[in-house]
């Protein structure tokens, strides 16, 4: 464990908690892409199957359970509890255009043709594109509540910190996970446009983020 990865995990946790509390307290999921949240729940489900087969550390196990519970709880809030506030017409991204290529690639490019390994690879590839329905929804509606932009900021920052973690691990322990690194770079690139708007609009105190 290193500071970059720990900070990254904390940013990830903060992002997930920000979103959950925003929906729970406002009793509304307006402007939130339910599709992205379902994809994230799928990412955690396919990645954390090793919860039952390999023990890494208490921290690792606890965080996996927390991420799984919060991810499914968020999906529950969107599609069941506050479904009347869900903008399904704005959440129109065709997720099959993500799932099919990601599933195909995870069979082609992986470390081993074994079920758990292919599912892990699927989760890595899927995570890099899982936010696209949410970003697409914001471009479609032309705006995002500031709390949603803070959620996206921490979510984007988490994987950027993981990039630093992989540089650190490469230089200190020769660790290099090519699949995770390439996907992490792609994932972080998708946030660049958002980061630009976030720093120029939201942090200027304009509250809402309205797209040009």
């Amino acid at each position: 464990m290193n500071i970059f990865r720990l900070l990254g995990d904390m940013c990830h946790l903060v992002a997930i908690i920000i979103l959950f509390l925003k929906i729970w307290r406002s009793k509304s999921c307006a402007g939130i892409s339910g599709k992205s949240q379902v994809l994230f729940a799928l990412v955690f489900t396919t990645r954390y199957l090793d919860l039952f087969t390999s023990f890494i550390s208490v921290y690792n196990t606890v965080m996996k359970v927390v991420f799984l519970v919060l991810a499914y709880a968020t999906v529950y809030l969107i599609y069941l509890r506050f479904r009347s506030t869900y903008n399904s017409e704005s959440d129109s991204f065709r997720v099959e255009f993500l799932l099919v290529p990601v599933a195909g690639l995870s069979f082609l490019e992986n470390y081993a043709f074994a079920p758990l390994e292919i599912l892990w690879t699927f989760s890595i590839y899927l995570e890099s594109v899982a936010i696209l329905p949410q970003l697409f929804m914001i471009t479609k509606t032309g705006e995002a509540e500031s709390i949603t932009t803070h959620y996206l900021f921490f979510l984007g920052l988490y994987r950027a910190l993981y990039l630093a973690n992989w540089v650190w691990r490469y230089h200190t322990e020769g660790f290099f996970d090519q699949i995770a690194v390439v996907s992490g770079v792609v994932q972080t690139i998708f946030y660049c446009d958002f980061f630009y708007l976030y720093f120029t609009k939201v942090l200027r105190g304009s509250g809402k983020m309205t797209l040009p």
């Binding site: 995990d9 690792n60 991420f67 973690n165």
Partner: peptide, 10 residues
Amino acid sequence: SVQLPRHDEL
């Protein structure tokens, strides 16, 4: 056999 990288990250 190919040593699988232990996925020790979240």
